[in-house]
Design a protein around this nucleic acid. Structure first.
Lengths: 206, 206
DNA sequence: CCACATCTGTAGTGAACACTACATATCTGG
DNA sequence: CCAGATATGTAGTGTTCACTACAGATGTGG
């Protein structure tokens, strides 16, 4: 019934990857539309037509980031024990956050911990995504406890929060120049707290 | 030999406390001169005459912050064992970062993890202050190891980095709404990694 | 080929920003 | 009381920001 109009000349996902990198490196407030459009290879009107506004672009970038991380997290929670889950996650983070292919640290931290007037919900947006990871981890630890892999007295939610906190702390350290070896040491120590809750206990009945 | 001029009508330390709170809540880039001057109860020319520029004001606020934290850290490292040092520090942080008298989280994190063009050295400035804490912790753990309080095979620098990372992670969680109990649980789990390195070993000879 | 719809590039818009010129006010030293 | 020095309040400065008006380009359906 209606004509379809001129088709878009850029690939949205590719452009989003470039935007993600800019937000990752400079944070939400530190990233300017000029930097974003240049990295994406488009002009401002194309950006606004496609993503609404700067915050919409951030959300799209966060969606893409968490989607990519999601497949990795699935591998993480596939580890056989709670201890191995923690180790695989934290060691993997040590590597990922110092991978020269990406900006250092984690977009969910670098994106914006504190923001000014007009961007107050950006930190909430990031926190919500982080808590998704934490929930996934918690569910895995609940299972580990049921399987007798964690102490009956252990608190899966607290353990997940702990691993999450360590991951965030590592992200901040990575962004301020910590090298891979330093982060691996942190991960190695951190895993010992999970080890202290681990063992082989009679599984709770199904 | 020269006249002294009109005396300043505000107290620099009091004004700095107010500025500190604004940076703490909104971050370096999110805090505007208008917000700062209003909180400090002065006008822009007074601010610039006294602190040079916005970054100078931040540095002064950081100095004040770390000075106040310094006396607390002295109490922390005065704990008798490495494990107690870690517990006192992380539990204290859980309380401090959720103290309604201050903005949530930690100024050394909230201040600015990622910044835009023209403020690139702000994150470095914060990282430098954080590493002061880490160094103090490391020195204390070196002593603990010498006293036979930590395993001979333990790495004090790695342990200090670990505690530091947990503290930063807790700060981020606090700023995104985690309550005191949640942070205490994180601290409680985190201490167990230090416990795993603790015991009573023959002290190395003086 | 034409009406219509959507994209693209140029060139801006008003608003908010960090910062400051300037006149005035308040001190000290002589 | 006067000269020099520094602080203060008013009222801006130029710059940069997110965002957009508009005209031309490129597609689809009839």
């Amino acid at each position: 019934m209606a004509a379809m109009g001129r088709p878009r000349e850029f690939d949205a996902e590719t452009a989003l990857d470039q935007a993600m990198e800019v937000f990752w490196r400079h944070g939400y407030e530190g990233a300017t539309i000029a930097q974003l459009t240049e990295a994406m290879g488009i002009n401002p009107p194309s950006l606004y037509a496609c993503f609404g506004n700067k915050e919409g672009l951030l959300k799209a970038a966060l969606d893409r980031y968490t989607k990519l991380r999601g497949v990795w997290m699935d591998e993480v929670v596939a580890a056989p024990t709670a201890r191995d889950v923690a180790e695989r996650m934290l060691m993997g983070i040590a590597d990922k956050q110092t991978d020269p292919a990406n900006p250092p640290g984690c977009l969910l931290v670098q994106g914006g911990i504190a923001c000014g007037t007009g961007s107050e919900n950006v930190p909430f947006e990031l926190a919500a995504r982080r808590s998704q990871n934490e929930d996934q981890l918690r569910d895995r630890f609940i299972r580990a406890k049921a399987e007798g892999d964690l102490k009956p007295a252990s608190d899966p939610a607290a353990l997940a929060r702990y691993v999450s906190a360590v991951a965030v702390g590592m992200g901040v350290m990575a962004s301020s120049g910590a090298d891979r070896e330093a982060l691996r040491q942190v991960a190695s120590v951190a895993v010992q707290a999970i080890e202290a809750q681990s063992g082989k206990f009679p599984p709770s009945r199904p």
